[in-house]
Design a protein around this nucleic acid. Structure first.
Length: 295
DNA sequence: GCGTCCAGGTCTACC
DNA sequence: GGTAGACCTGGACGC
């Protein structure tokens, strides 16, 4: 049985720019139907109910088609607000970038919201999956996690695995089945910490710590270095760090340094004027052309 | 077919 | 605090 609900969106919200803002829409249990611009995700609630939903733009609101009936509808709507960052204020960022000719498109397009997962745990695991490998391998590892350990809905769709599910298998499982390589013990340790209550990544969403201190906390997780911590901080709504990786650096060299390599300090200096928004500024700047012909 | 390189890095040991 | 070397995987590339 299918249910449809609608969710109001703010005037400066762009569904397509949010969904396509970075690669997360490509990682299970997300799936993007680019032809019809429908984003699907397999939601799960703490009671274990699993429900796929399809989200699409309905002009000033979102249309959400629920394909399961058992899921907690209130929680699901909270999750949708969270993953699409509907309540995130970007006015200050837009004011800053409007003053830059090459970045004025961001406010005009209502861009800058980065799609995220319903839980910080899921974003943390996915971020570790992006380190030191190709995007194809990242997708493969995430898909293997979902297929092997994700709770299954009545229709056969699988949610992202819970910390408990990931903690129930040995490190060797991540190596042999997930193909996570050297990351395997990191996943086993992280899952055990979260499942046992020793670590609660969801607390980072509302932490009072300054970003530099929170970054130190995040880096205590094995497998998380500067890039991964700063990438996760962006998904927590903190954009002080650039989250430089080889892709972002190469894009900067092409766009702003005549295709020549340069130091990270030079990249930092380039975006310094955006202050605590510089991480979002570089990301929007480097991904501007992603939207050519896509929207 | 085989070897090498490298991609949306991080950890550890050592200085 | 800075640096070198090791670490998994799998696709691309050259031979």
């Amino acid at each position: 049985m299918k249910q449809t609900v609608f969710l109001e969106t703010p005037v400066n919200f762009s569904f397509r720019h949010t969904v396509y803002a970075h690669g997360w829409c490509d990682l299970r249990p997300f799936n993007l139907d680019e032809k019809n611009w429908r984003l699907s995700y397999v939601f799960a609630d703490p009671a274990g109910a699993v429900s796929p939903a399809v989200i699409s733009d309905a002009g000033g609101k979102l249309k959400i088609e629920l394909l399961g009936t058992k899921v907690d509808k209130k929680k699901l709507l909270r999750d949708v607000r969270h993953i699409l960052r509907i309540d995130e204020p970007l006015d200050e960022f837009y004011d800053l970038t409007r003053g830059e000719e090459r970045l004025a498109w961001i406010a005009a397009a209502n861009a800058g919201r980065l799609l995220r997962s319903p839980t910080v745990f899921e974003d943390l695991v996915k971020t570790i999956c992006t380190t030191n490998c190709s995007w194809a391998l990242t997708k493969n590892m995430v898909a293997n996690l979902v297929e092997s350990l994700g709770e299954e809905s009545s229709g056969g769709d699988r949610a992202f695995p819970t910390p408990q599910a990931m903690a129930s298998v040995p490190a060797g499982f991540f190596r042999d089945e997930i193909r996570a390589g050297y990351r395997s013990p990191y996943f086993a340790e992280l899952a055990e910490s979260v499942a046992s209550g020793k670590l609660d990544p969801e607390e980072w969403l509302h932490s009072d710590l300054p970003t530099s201190e929170l970054k130190k906390e995040i880096k205590k997780v094995k497998g998380v270095g500067d890039y991964a911590a700063e990438n996760l901080l962006k998904l927590l709504g903190r954009y002080d760090g650039l989250a430089l990786d080889s892709w972002l650096r190469s894009q900067f060299y092409k766009k702003h340094n005549k295709e020549k390599t340069c130091s990270d300090k030079k990249i930092e200096k380039h975006y310094k004027k955006f202050g605590e928004w510089k991480g979002l500024a570089i990301w929007c700047d480097m991904t501007e052309r992603w939207f050519d012909g896509k929207l």
